[in-house]
Design a protein around this nucleic acid. Structure first.
Lengths: 342, 342
DNA sequence: TTTCTTTTTGCAACCGGTTGCAAAAAGAAG
DNA sequence: CTTCTTTTTGCAACCGGTTGCAAAAAGAAA
């Protein structure tokens, strides 16, 4: 028999404690002037009644909701489960609540901005490696503080960016393959429209351009997913001839590719090398054991949350780029570095 | 030079259109009485100014925020990425916004209730296969409409439940293993405190009790994760002797177990059989190819969202249990059904 | 004790909307 | 053109809080 009792309001507490509503409001606002006696009286009444201030009502006057829009379009790459886990926890730790927005269906920036503005979010975190910088800019233009995590960086940023230098990662992958002595290498990216794919590809090409003795080719999967990686590798196998090693734009693509290779009877790393990107949990599973380049996800997220908090305090803060280094994680899908012999 | 302009309010629109604020409010409230002429005038002014109503302010009087708390503690099982994807999309489709709450750190029901009450969520979806029913009840007791998805069901429910009959799933797994002619089978569950593990185990035991010729044993991993599954299987291998086949409480545990078995040089399905649960995407990856029991995740989520919407309209709706059938997905980790010969 | 300073408190307006009610306008009937 | 209905509109109070300002209380100084 749930007697859906009306929630306790500030006024109820004021009545019970026989003080003004301002007094009650002040006891629950830190930094406000309240005597010890008053505070005790109010707190007693509040706890008797089980009062808890309504965050939405106060937001009306303070202009702060403590709501942060968490926008993403990547709900298929397992790495993002970790991303959501970390974001939600770290935001909670700062007393902020994430309002999730799934962009898988709707990609229009303006609609997204409107939707979140309706809820007066204090700020927005765009967590995506595929959305173009323009997307985040739409928020800034609407006057909503925004941090773009895992996005494309620019040396003249218009919004705050936290992530890695994807083209440097591409170079790193290229360097690694060259140093292993592969004489023909390939880039197998995610969707050609994804900024991360574009950037990693650019870096990879730049690096390879330094090594004219190594031939290289490239292709793109339709999606950052197992299936897309598998299908793309099947296509490459069918077309032939294969390169000696591939840099896949994401671990999940790599795993798809590995599956296609295994099916075709090719042994990794003996017949062909694969290097992935992200160092997702599965990459270290023994039956996958993928050599990959890891990005410091936790640091990126930690820094993003710290940054958005700072921006809330100072909305005119100058746009900032925070880049973190990636690192090679060697496992079993590349052949050994050739021993230098004279 | 972001001129963080004050957002446009209802009053601004009223001034520009030279009408009362009520008129503006009414044009944006469907079902309200406004003449065509008035509507046009207001809409013109609103679009000139780029006005969009503040959802939080209106919630103050209407008592509706269209905010739904999405509570979960499972941010490590990849299947939940799909769960979040579907929930966020389906909620968005209904004009509701998910406020995410990560319970990984904080398990106290009352704190969770308070936190979400501060934001006056219209309702809560508890998406967890491990939290006890008492957790959801805390919301109901606080007068917050709640649907427990993927939770333990009861024939005398106190909160709305949508999910599968986990003990029936346990029976199904038991039946399957028996029918394959295994003469000694094991149950390898997730954490012993998880309701889903308990229920699947109960069903499994019940089924096995009908087949006295088959011996059975059981053990529990510390967590629904690859590592936990791997470690638990390593422990079983070390202890010996192994059963002929295992029902693992989740695919991710199964995959961990497979990894341990491969490492120990045991061939699946020749030496040992494994059946998982969930039919996660990875289960069908060729290098895993796991026989498993799938639950209809999309239907469960679709139904959960429909249900919460109905409850919002009628908060006193009688608690309801909605169960969906699971189904066997045969792949390559169980041996073939023996051909009956006379 | 009186006077001046500092702290605490309440009043009342406000945040951005909604809504019951009664007055005004429009339409229908006579 | 009245008179009666129905629809449309605005007024003003309200939702649950916050906050500037001035009055009241408390404390310090004389």
């Amino acid at each position: 028999m749930s007697i859906t009792s009306r929630p306790v309001t500030l006024k109820d507490v004021a009545n019970r404690a026989e003080v003004s509503t301002s007094a009650v409001s002040r006891t629950f606002t830190d930094g406000a002037s309240v005597s010890e006696k008053m505070r005790r009286k109010v707190e007693k009444a509040a706890s008797d009644l089980g009062y808890s201030p309504n965050a939405l009502a106060s937001s009306l006057t303070t202009g702060r909701t403590k709501l942060i829009g968490l926008v993403s379009n990547n709900f298929h790459n397992p790495i993002f489960l970790q991303v959501f886990d970390l974001f939600t926890r770290k935001l909670q730790d700062k007393g902020l609540r994430p309002l999730l927005m799934n962009l898988s269906d709707e990609q229009d920036a303006l609609t997204a901005v409107r939707r979140l503005q309706k809820y007066s979010v204090d700020g927005v975190i765009v967590a995506s490696s595929t959305l173009p910088p323009e997307f985040s800019k739409a928020f800034r233009d609407a006057g909503v503080p925004v941090v773009n995590s895992f996005g494309r960086f620019s040396t003249t940023p218009e919004v705050h960016i936290v992530g890695v230098d994807n083209s440097e990662c591409g170079r790193m992958a290229g360097r690694e393959l060259v140093s292993r002595g592969y004489s023909s290498v390939g880039f197998m990216g995610g969707p050609e429209t994804a900024t991360s794919t574009q950037d990693r590809f650019r870096g990879f090409s730049q690096e390879l351009a330094k090594h004219l003795e190594v031939t290289h080719c490239h292709s793109f999967a339709t999606d950052y997913s197992f299936d897309a990686g598998r299908i793309e590798m099947q296509r490459l196998i069918a077309k032939g001839p294969l390169a000696d090693a591939y840099f896949c734009g994401d671990d999940v693509l790599s795993i798809g590719a590995l599956s296609a290779l295994a099916e075709a009877g090719l042994n990794v790393p003996r017949d062909i090398g694969i290097i992935g990107f992200n160092d997702m949990e599965m990459a270290r599973w023994e039956n996958i054991n993928l050599t990959t380049i890891g990005q410091p996800i936790e640091q990126i997220i930690h820094s993003s949350v710290e940054l958005i908090v700072s921006i809330l305090d100072d909305p005119n803060r100058y746009p900032e780029v925070r880049l973190f280094p990636c690192k090679m994680v060697e496992r079993g899908t590349l052949r050994a570095v050739p021993t230098t012999e004279t």
